[in-house]
């Protein structure tokens, strides 16, 4: 997947991964993809909820060695 920007949210807890995702998306353009890496298991549900409420698309999410990887496409 073509990634335009990456956000390292490892070690951060609720609500920081969401707030930093929002901030990172702010200076991106429509259609661009943000990759977020988080270690907060709560962010799995929260990222989906963020996408549902903001209209950005959570293209995919996966887990690898305790890290959660999200690809969020800006609305």
């Amino acid at each position: 997947m073509n990634v335009d920007k990456e956000l390292d949210a490892r070690g951060l807890n609720c609500p920081l991964p969401i707030l930093k995702t929002k901030k990172s998306l702010a200076d991106m353009t429509s259609g661009q993809v943000l990759k977020v890496v988080s270690t907060d298991c709560g962010s799995v549900k929260d990222m989906q909820a963020f996408a549902n409420q903001t209209g950005n698309t959570l293209v995919s999410q996966s887990e690898e060695n305790g890290e959660y990887i999200f690809f969020m496409q800006k609305k």
Binding site: P15, I18, L19, T21, K22, F50, Q53, T54
Partner: peptide
């Protein structure tokens, strides 16, 4: 502060 900042992020 958690709820306010998050709600703001959600628009």
């Amino acid at each position: 502060f958690i709820l306010a900042s998050t709600a703001a992020a959600l628009g």
